[in-house]
Design a binder for these strands. Structure first.
Lengths: 150, 150
DNA sequence: CAGGAGTCCGAACACTATTCGGCGTCCGGC
DNA sequence: GCCGGACGCCGAATAGTGTTCGGACTCCTG
């Protein structure tokens, strides 16, 4: 994980589809060298994959929210089960098991507020292990990539 | 945005680096057709980019957390300023402006708990507009891609 | 100083992206 | 019902790309 690896990671986080030649040229190395580095980063698990970033609005998901959930018995069984159940739902983008007052943070994306309400009362209230929940609608968001310097 | 477009989006979310030929073959269309569709999806803003998924641990970020922040005057000025300031920090992965008791949800990733503590007392407590904050360490997480069916 | 491991390089080859003219299909107008 | 235009799909051709591999170089070690 030297400077070259970091530079490759940085570049591929910004544009994963640039050609290997372009990448090599930017970093000042031969394409074959660059390719080998990328392959090794893959093999070591540093690069986990390449994904297209899709506009949720284009797929009719204009409302996003975080739902904090407190589980009744915060046991392993309940947590694992709830996590799997949430993850299987199409409205769910991400599930976080967290420390604190709540046990879960569920990131959901739905077409509109009605759909959010439906999700809450049909998918959450229905589950008995849910002791309480609180939803926070996302007004605005900005995401980044991880940068190497601490 | 027909069935073919949806299939392309679905495929490219899973693997953005598969060759156009492979993609075309999976979907049962000619490579040239597939390429044209992908270009249009780009042009329409449906596909916003392609990004490599990097293991945070490999970049020495083994601790992640959500920090909920309440701003003193929840004014536009304060919100915009705080959002920009947070986004500029290397520890910050994402910033969410949310509705509810707290005004912000900041997703951070740091090397260890000490670094998290430093972040909280050096970067948050320092800011005068921060009325209060609460941090939730992430024990476990799972992310997905948006799927077309509602 | 010799040996060895590791890394980088450049040329060769197979494969791929990309372009473009033509074909088929659908649809509205006459 | 027939014509004409628009649109989308296709396949061949070309330019560019990924990938492999042997050799050269550097750096460390004994």
């Amino acid at each position: 994980m030297d400077e070259l690896d970091s530079a490759i990671v940085r570049e591929l986080q910004q544009d994963a589809r640039q050609t290997n030649r372009a990448l090599a040229h930017k970093l000042g190395v031969a394409p074959s060298t660059c390719l080998e580095r990328v392959r090794l980063l893959h093999q070591r698990g540093v690069i986990r994959g390449y994904h297209a970033d899709i506009d949720p609005g284009a797929l009719n998901r204009r409302v996003e929210a975080f739902v904090s959930v407190e589980l009744r018995p915060p046991s392993r069984r309940a947590i694992e089960g709830f996590k799997a159940a949430m993850f299987a739902l199409p409205e769910v983008l991400a599930v976080y098991v967290v420390a604190g007052e709540q046990d879960f943070l569920v990131h959901v994306s739905v077409p509109d507020l009605d759909a959010l309400h439906s999700f809450l009362i049909d998918r959450l209230t229905e589950r008995r292990e849910v002791a309480s929940f609180r939803s926070q609608i996302i007004y605005d968001s900005a995401r980044k990539h991880v940068s190497d310097p601490l």
